[in-house]
Structures are given as structure tokens and as C-alpha cells.
Design a protein around this nucleic acid. Structure first.
Length: 959
RNA sequence: GCAGGGGUAGCAAAGCUUGGUCAAACGCGCCAGGUUCAGGGCCUGGUCCCUUAGGGGUUCGUGAGUUCAAAUCUCACCCCCUGCACCA
């Protein structure tokens, strides 16, 4: 049995000794193949392998195709996640500790990780690089680096200087999720339960206090409903203040005043109680109506402004609040519920178009004239419903009306609601009757891990303006020139490019490069990782020449990356020898002209777009990204690998247990590039046993002593060459699964068929296996070497050339003949099964099975008919091989298919007869009876004339 | 909500660009039989329905349409996945 561990170690050692993967520029075409460096705050599992194995596959394939390939690797440690891990360990985060333990990280190491980010980084760098080594990835390790290395920092500093020069680095106000306790921005991973804080804008509509110069600041998402406002709601228990903003005085809750002070200047001039507000009335800025102020049970002190404009006709909460006031006997004036938005009629039913998710039974809206009530009725509910139900009705109303609503009143009457909303909003802002505020838009409040409620703060900070029109156009113009695999992702890349906009470029804490224009901050950790593949091309030259980070001043990068400046003056200012500078420069030029970058799809919307933008901004066109390859994820027996399911297999453990090669194979060949593939132990077993079969075949091969090439040998050669041709085309288009189905699974089936059919030529089998071994090189590199070696080759597959097709061996009729033989066996089995049940055949045995191949005139007639599609036309032709009656009978059989038949290359009668004759012994063995092969013309069988082109007739003779 | 992708037989996954050769590849699972066979492995056959001569019927999210012909083209609808930014 093959021992994968020994085998893998053996060949990894040989590759390393032969320096197969240590590439330097030469006369060949070069290609730089990279995968984004992994973030080293967590161990790798077998799912991560797919991207790296695919990258390795491509680089090995391209090397075999004659390219000079460089596949380097590095590690990402800059940014906040490592700090976060250190912090969580400090706090004895049980979940994290359990997680680490499941990866067999010792308690001792976990203890060391506490509050020591660098230890964490180094620990996982070792973990990842061990995994990469064990997997046998063909990496040039001389070029490794970490994103917190000083050299890396020098490059990033240079990059940011350039971005600023180009005007792409800007300073400005920007809203972020914010924790007032931590005094820092809050992203998804900083919150409890990893909730993403959604930042939305609300408009504050100003309703002037009828009796003073102050305004009721009503926050709303739906300013268009202003035409139906009946009153203002305040919370009875809420403490209000008078706050000065934009040089006006506003009534606003004390809490929201505090929150809004993070967004604008808010000066509190005094307090005012809810009771006082309730005595006032307010003026609608658009309709100029004066409306009362009433208590709303649902008004919250920390949402929006703590003051709500009431639209009972369209807002279920508002409707419910008024109804409840009525029932409680609160004195309210007469109120008119005015429907101002209509839903386009559908099937006569005016509301409830998209109620698919509502389990409403037979509920009917009884009050379509009051949508807020109608939506409650649809839900079998009423104004006394619990808040959740009101919330649901609100969402329903919002969705329906936003989708199909049309304004019935006002300046924008007749306009679609969402459009009208925007117009009214800008009108209000324009006329100084409203302004925007930012709020956290999640349904539930979002809490920072520290327990504080997350708010929105507008911060003044540096960001990269990917929204720059010129820049975006340049990128979008270039995108079609990039090769993207799978091809259908091109649309996604365009969408991602369009979507990319302002991107904060600095963070208050974390590891990494200091922000050059504000040294208290560091560069955000995706922004620092966009052009680092350039570093791979020359960093080993810096290492081997002892170049110090301090020498890497901007002039260095200008020269090496952009070719700017004069080498001797750069040498003078950097104190780096001109030969070294030139070597670096040449290396960049050599490798960076042709690149291929590989990753999973989750990087498209962040790393990839930024990668493309930065290259386009900084480099000459010849260095822009050439090719991007995106591979899907790996599932474990149908389920996502996740901590909660407990189905994560650590990479090292997986390799030990299953072998690197079988793992690579199932992960890559299990599905097309972009689909998720399935990992399962049974899948692995299947590969292991198939490999064993191939390996054992080498021993069997030695015993084959046939010297003459027979029909089945020609078949094997033909299949082999067709296979090489097809597989090469598939691989060139990144159809990895298709390629390896043919190279691997089909080859094994074919070898078995060859042996079954009595194939006996050792040389033919040798050549077949040899080529298969070569083609397996990129996907199962260790096994490929082992197989290659076992045949008696002393070279390394990793350094061999990819096999080429010898077209002269491709013989389609021979391949087709074997297919016909297979089909005929199936047909015979069916026939025998059926006829044996016939009464006249009971107590009888099969005497002989006749296989009768059709005459060539049938093929000719078939094709003639396919061409002319007219029987009498075909009959007019010369038919000397058969009498007209037969031709006519044959054609009439085809007549009902006359439109659908296509011209076909049929196997000639003689070759098919020949093929079957050679298979005679095999057939009678398979069928357990004597077999006769006959030609239609000379057969005496009554069934002879049933023979069709490519489909011999069968006559089972009973006796 | 917006954007991108997708719905194919027990699972999983090709096919869809270039309509017919598709009851639909490869693989897994399952069933039956075989194998000097414990199990496993391996081999053969079967795995939508019907069928006493290799045949027929109904299928590729739903519904319409184009066509001599649709898994493949068009439209509408339903459902699923992913992303929506300061985060690797």
C-alpha cells in the first residue's frame, strides 16, 4: 500500500534539493503566481487548502507548459484582529480558548498568547508555513515576509505618499459606528454577536413651535408622508432639552442630543419637560397646518431625536398610539386619516402584493382607506397588538408602498413613492426645513463587546477616495482586458468596482505601518496590502545583500518599481549598490509583466478591487493585473465547515490523516472552479484506492508481452491523445474538474477496459500511464512523482514538460467502435433477458449470438437524407450496392425522423466488422456464449436488415 | 432594499455560450449478483415509470412564449446563496 506520508516527505525533499521552485529571471517567459497572504490570527484548516492547492496546480501546470514560474508566499499580521485575539485571551474568552484547543494548541502556548500579539503572529506564521510545507506546495520560500516587517512598512509608506500626490488620499468627515466607551470605531467583529452596525440616514423635519421660535425636530425615514401628518408625538417619560444646532433652537430628547453631538455641534440651552411640550402645537412646514402634540407610547428617548411626526394613515405605530389614546380617554381633537399613497391595483386587490411571507390565512383588509390599519388587518391583528406585530406591519407597509406606491397628493402627486421621497427630502433641506442625521439602522440596538450601545460618530479622517471619477473610469476601462476565471465573475468585478467608494485608510490601533500623515494612527490593514506582490519579485535580493530598511527611502521604490530617477543618484541617496538596484529593477520588470492571482470569492469586494485600483493608480500599464482566478469554498459532507458544527479538520491533521494528494484532488476536482466542493472521508478513500490501482498497474504492465499493435492498442493510443488534447484545453480555461475527470477517472476506466478486452501491450500501457503521471503532476504532485518514478524514470515530474498530443494517433472510428461494442453488449444483455422469457424459448439454451453490422450504403443513404431531407431526391441517386427496394424501405424507416437526423461520421462496415471480429473472444467470454460476427450483405439471418449504421443488429439463436 | 450568483434525478455535480446526438457525463450513496469473499476492497448489472427483441412514456424551480424541436432561447413569478465597507 502506498504510504502517503513517506511518499510526500520523500518528494518534497527531492524538490527542495533540486531547487525546483526557486525561480530567477531567465530567457523563458515568466509568470508570477500568487495567492493573497493569510491573516495569521487563526490556524489553517483543510478548507483553506483549496485556494493554495489551486494556485499550486496552476503554477506547476504553467511550469510544465514551459513557463518560468514564481510562486511566493507571505503573511499578513498588520491590523487589529491579532490585537483582538490577544485581548480576548486576556479576558479568558472561553469560546476562543476552546476553539484554539480544538486545533491542538497547548495551554502553555495559549497562555503565552495573552496580550502578546507578536507571539500570536509568530505562532500562526509557523502553523501556516508548516501546513504549506506539508501540503507540498511549490513555494519559493526565500521571498517570504510579514506585513509588519520594516521593509514592508517602507513600501507602504512610499505607496501612500504616491496616493497623496495623485490626489487619491483625502481627508474628510465620515460617519462610522462608534463606541463612546472605547473611543474607537466599531466594525462587525467589535460588536456583541458580531452584528454589523448599519449606518442609515434619517431626515429631521422641522415643525415650528406655533408659540415660540423653537422647532420640533422630527426624525423620519419617510418624509413623503408629511402630507398626512396629524400631530407630533413625544414620550411622556422622556426628558427633553432645547438644543442649538445650525443656529436654530430645537426640541429634542436629552439622550439623542448627546448622541447627535458626535455628528454636529449641539449646544444645550435648557431643559424642557414632556408635559410642557404636550401643551404646544406645531406647524407643518409643507402644508402649513397646525397640529397638536400628543404622547406616543412607543417613542424612545435614544432613537432618532425622541420626537416623531405622526402619520396614522400610513404608520401602524402612529395609528395604534392614537387609538389607544382614544380608548384611554385622553382628550384629542378630531383627526382626519388621510391616505396619501396608493398601491397600484393588482388582481383587484389593492394591498398585499408581496405577502408571501405572511401566514395570514383568510385575513382581509377591511379598511383599505387607512393603510396602517389595513396592514394590521392583513396580519389578523389590531391596534392593540404587541410592538413586534406593529413593527412587522410597519415593515410590510414600508415594503409595499416603497415598491408599488404612488403619491396621491402634493407637488409630486402621481410620482412613484421612492422617487417622491427623495425629492421631498431635498426640497426640505433646500428650504431649510430639514437636515440629515446618521443613525444605527439595525432593528435591534447594537452593542460593542464592552457593553456600550454603538452610536454613529462623524470623524475627521484620512481616506482613499476610490470614488474618484477619473480613477474609476480608468479601472473600468481596463477591467475587460483582464482575464477573470470563472468568466461569469466579470460582472461581479464590474459591480464591485462601481460600488467601491470612500475607504477609511487609518485606524487608531493595531500592528503595522504608521500612517505617514498622522503618526498616531496606523494604516488600515487591507489598504496596506494591495501592491505587496511586487515585493516578492525582489525582496530576496535585499535580504541576501543585507539591505537595511532605512535605506529604502522613496527614491528606491521610485526607481525599482517605476523606473524613475537615475540609478547612480538613487544609489548615492540609498547607499545601495547600482548593481543591486538594477537587479531589483530587472526582477520587477521580468516577473510583474505577467501575473496570476488566486483566491476565494470573499475577497472580490475588498482585496481584489483595491488591488486593481492601486495597481492602476501607481503603476504603468504593463504592470497592471493580468489574471484573477477565483475558487469556491470547501464543505464537509455537505455542510459548511464551522466551529459550531465542530467539523473543522486542522490542515496538518488532515494531511497526516488523508494525505496531501487525495485532499488536493477531492478539493479541486470535486467541482468546477467556482462551485463549492465537498470534502468527505469516503471521497478520499475512493482516490486512495484508485491511486493504488494505477500504481499496481505498473507491476501488471511488466507482464504484458504483446508485441504487435492490435485494434485495442490503437484505441488506447487514440484515447490517450484525445485526452491530452481535451485536458489541455480544459486546463487552459480553468475547467479543472472536467480536465481531471478525463485525466484521472476516465483513464482508470479505460485501463480496465483495455485489460478486459485483452490488451497485452506493455509499451502502450507504459506510455499511457506515463502521460497520466505527468498530467497528474499539478494536482497530485507527490503521487505523480511516485508513479513516474516507479515506471523507471529518474527525472522529476515537477521539471518535466506537459505532454503534447500526437494527432496521428487520434483515430475517431476506432474510439467509436469501442463505444459501439459497449453499447452492443448492453443491447445483447437486454435482448437475452427479454427473449429468455418468451414461451417458445423456455427449456432452450442460447446456441449462438449473431452480431450483424450494417452495409455502407445505409450510412450513405442516411447522410444523403440528412442533407436533402427528401426521400425521393435521395432515391434519384445511384444505388448500385443494393437494390432500390431495400434503400426505399430503409429510408422510409427514417422518414419520421427526417427533420431531426444529422449528418454523421459512421464507422465503415469493414472497420466495424474488423473491430467486432477482434472483440469476438471478449464478447463470448462476457456473454457466456458463442458469438458470430457477420456483415449484413452476407448474413443469412432474418434480422440482418435491422442493422443500422453504428448499431449492429443482434440475433439471439435459441436451440 | 440594492448588487452579483444560483435552482438539474437519493446526494453531489456536468450540460445551458453554439436548441436536436440528453432519461441527461464523472463521482458518492443505495440494491442485486459475483469473487477460494469475515468485514473492507474489487468485479458485473441495476438505481424516474412502463415494457416477453434492443421499445415507449413522463422529467431538468413554477407558469407562459418562440420553434418542426427547449434542461438549453425569451418573458413573468417563486425560492435559495453571497456581499453591502473601515473588516480580514
Amino acid at each position: 500500500m502506498l504510504n502517503y506520508k513517506d511518499m510526500e516527505e520523500k518528494w518534497q525533499k527531492q524538490w527542495s534539493e533540486a531547487k525546483v521552485f526557486e525561480s530567477e529571471p531567465n530567457e523563458k517567459n515568466g509568470i508570477l503566481v500568487t495567492a493573497p497572504f493569510p491573516y495569521v490570527n487563526t490556524p489553517l484548516h483543510i478548507g483553506h487548502l483549496r485556494t493554495y492547492a489551486t494556485t499550486d496546480l496552476y503554477s506547476r501546470y504553467m511550469r510544465m507548459k514551459g513557463f518560468n514560474v514564481l510562486f511566493p508566499f507571505a503573511f499578513h499580521a498588520s491590523g487589529t484582529p491579532i490585537l483582538a485575539i490577544a485581548k480576548r485571551l486576556m479576558n479568558n474568552d472561553k469560546e476562543l480558548i476552546d476553539d484554539f484547543r480544538s486545533f491542538k494548541i497547548s495551554d502553555e502556548d495559549i497562555a503565552k498568547m495573552r496580550n502578546d500579539p507578536l507571539f500570536i503572529a509568530n505562532y500562526f506564521i509557523k502553523n501556516v508555513s508548516d501546513g504549506m510545507h506539508k501540503a507540498g506546495l511549490g513555494i519559493d520560500w526565500r521571498r517570504r515576509f510579514v506585513s509588519i516587517d520594516p521593509i514592508f512598512g517602507k513600501m507602504v509608506t512610499w505607496q501612500f505618499g504616491k496616493l497623496k500626490e495623485l490626489g487619491y488620499l483625502e481627508k474628510g468627515m465620515h460617519p462610522v459606528g462608534w463606541c463612546t466607551n472605547d473611543q474607537s470605531a466599531v466594525g462587525q467583529h467589535d460588536t456583541k454577536h458580531d452584528v454589523h452596525p448599519e449606518i442609515k440616514t434619517m431626515i429631521v423635519v422641522e415643525f415650528k413651535d406655533a408659540g415660540s421660535d423653537a422647532y420640533f425636530a422630527c426624525a423620519t425615514y419617510r418624509p413623503e408622508t408629511i402630507y398626512a401628518v396629524t400631530n407630533i408625538f413625544v414620550g411622556k417619560e422622556i426628558q427633553y432639552v432645547i438644543a442649538r444646532m445650525n443656529n436654530k433652537r430645537y426640541y429634542i430628547s436629552k439622550e439623542t442630543a448627546q448622541i447627535l453631538s458626535n455628528q454636529a455641534s449641539v449646544k444645550i440651552e435648557g431643559e424642557v419637560s414632556a408635559d410642557e411640550l404636550l401643551k404646544k402645537s406645531a406647524v407643518n412646514p409643507i402644508t402649513k397646518e397646525t397640529v397638536p402634540v400628543l404622547p406616543g407610547f412607543f417613542v424612545k428617548p435614544d432613537v432618532g431625536t425622541g420626537i416623531v411626526m405622526s402619520v396614522p394613515s400610513h404608520a401602524p405605530f402612529d395609528y395604534a398610539a392614537l387609538e389607544r389614546l382614544k380608548t384611554s380617554g385622553y382628550p384629542i381633537p378630531k383627526i382626519e386619516y388621510k391616505r396619501i399613497i396608493d398601491i397600484e391595483p393588482l388582481n383587484g386587490n389593492k394591498i398585499g402584493r408581496s405577502l408571501g411571507d405572511v401566514i395570514a390565512g383568510e385575513a382581509k383588509p377591511l379598511h383599505p382607506e387607512i393603510p396602517a390599519l389595513a396592514y394590521l388587518e392583513i396580519l389578523n391583528s389590531d391596534p392593540n397588538a404587541i410592538d413586534d406585530m406593529l413593527e412587522f406591519a410597519t415593515k410590510l407597509a414600508y415594503r409595499e408602498e416603497s415598491h408599488w406606491g404612488v403619491m396621491l397628493v402634493g407637488k409630486y402627486s402621481g410620482m412613484k413613492e421612492p422617487e417622491a421621497r427623495e425629492k421631498i427630502k431635498s426640497d426640505l433641506i433646500e428650504s431649510n426645513d430639514g437636515f440629515d442625521i446618521f443613525v444605527i439602522g439595525n432593528d435591534e440596538p447594537v452593542y460593542c463587546r464592552c457593553g456600550t450601545k454603538v452610536i454613529v460618530k462623524v470623524v475627521d479622517q484620512w481616506f482613499i477616495n476610490y470614488g474618484n471619477k477619473k480613477w474609476k473610469k480608468e479601472v473600468n476601462d481596463y477591467l475587460p482586458n483582464m482575464k477573470i476565471y470563472p468568466k461569469k465573475l466579470s460582472a461581479t468585478f464590474s459591480a464591485a468596482s462601481d460600488w467601491l467608494d470612500l475607504r477609511a485608510a487609518e485606524r487608531a490601533q493595531g500592528l503595522g505601518t504608521k500612517f505617514p500623515f498622522d503618526e498616531r494612527h496606523i494604516i488600515e490593514s487591507l489598504s496596506d496590502s494591495t501592491i505587496y506582490p511586487t515585493l516578492y519579485t525582489y525582496i530576496h535580493i535585499l535580504y541576501s545583500n543585507g539591505i537595511k530598511p532605512e535605506q529604502l527611502i522613496p527614491e528606491f521604490f521610485d526607481y525599482v518599481l517605476l523606473g524613475k530617477g537615475n540609478v547612480s543618484s538613487v544609489s548615492q541617496s540609498t547607499k545601495i549598490d547600482t548593481t543591486i538596484l538594477n537587479k531589483c529593477r530587472e526582477s520587477v520588470q521580468y516577473w510583474y509583466k505577467n501575473t496570476s492571482r488566486h483566491s476565494a470569492p470573499d475577497l472580490i469586494y475588498n482585496h481584489y478591487v483595491m488591488y486593481i485600483y492601486n495597481h492602476v493608480a501607481l503603476f504603468p500599464k504593463e504592470f497592471w493585473p493580468r489574471q484573477i482566478v477565483v475558487n469556491g469554498m470547501v464543505n464537509y459532507e455537505g455542510e459548511k465547515m464551522s466551529k459550531s458544527l465542530g467539523n473543522i479538520v486542522p490542515l496538518s491533521e488532515g494531511i497526516e490523516k488523508y494525505g496531501s494528494d487525495p485532499l488536493r484532488f477531492v478539493e479541486i476536482a470535486g467541482g468546477d472552479l467556482d462551485t463549492e466542493t465537498e470534502f468527505s472521508p469516503t471521497g478520499i478513500n475512493s482516490i486512495v484506492s484508485k491511486n493504488q490501482y494505477l500504481f499496481d498497474m505498473v507491476l501488471k504492465m511488466e507482464e504484458l508481452d504483446g508485441s504487435e499493435l492490435t485494434h485495442i492498442d490503437y484505441w488506447l493510443y487514440s484515447r490517450l491523445n484525445s485526452k491530452i488534447k481535451n485536458a489541455t484545453e480544459s486546463l487552459d480555461g480553468f475547467m479543472l474538474r472536467g480536465a481531471y475527470t478525463d485525466i484521472y477517472y476516465n483513464s482508470i476506466t479505460e485501463l480496465k477496459w483495455y485489460m478486459d478486452r485483452g490488451g497485452n501491450n506493455g509499451l502502450a500501457v507504459r506510455e499511457f500511464i506515463e502521460k497520466i503521471a505527468l498530467m497528474l503532476g499539478p494536482i497530485m504532485p507527490h503521487f505523480a512523482e511516485e508513479l513516474w518514478n516507479s515506471i523507471g524514470n529518474n527525472t522529476l515530474v515537477a521539471k518535466e514538460r506537459w505532454p503534447t498530443t500526437d494527432e496521428t494517433y487520434i483515430n475517431k472510428p476506432v474510439e467509436k467502435t469501442e463505444e459501439i461494442i459497449k453499447d452492443t453488449i448492453d443491447d445483447i444483455n437486454n435482448t437475452v433477458a427479454l427473449t429468455s422469457r418468451m414461451p417458445q424459448n423456455s427449456n432452450k439454451r442460447i446456441k449462438e449470438i449473431k452480431v450483424i453490422v450494417s452495409d455502407d450504403w445505409k450510412s450513405d443513404a442516411y447522410n444523403a437524407l440528412a442533407e436533402k431531407r427528401n426521400i425521393s431526391e435521395v432515391m434519384k441517386m445511384q444505388w448500385n450496392a443494393a437494390d432500390k427496394e431495400k434503400v426505399s424501405k430503409f429510408l422510409s424507416q427514417l422518414s419520421k425522423k427526417i427533420r431531426t437526423i444529422e449528418k454523421t461520421e459512421f464507422v465503415k462496415c469493414d472497420s466495424l466488422f474488423d473491430g467486432f471480429s477482434h472483440a469476438k473472444a471478449y464478447l463470448s467470454k462476457r456473454l457466456g456464449s458463442s458469438v458470430a460476427i457477420e456483415k449484413e450483405q452476407s448474413s443469412g439471418s432474418s434480422r440482418a436488415e435491422r442493422a443500422m449504421p453504428n448499431k449492429p443488429s443482434i440475433d439471439v439463436v435459441w436451440s
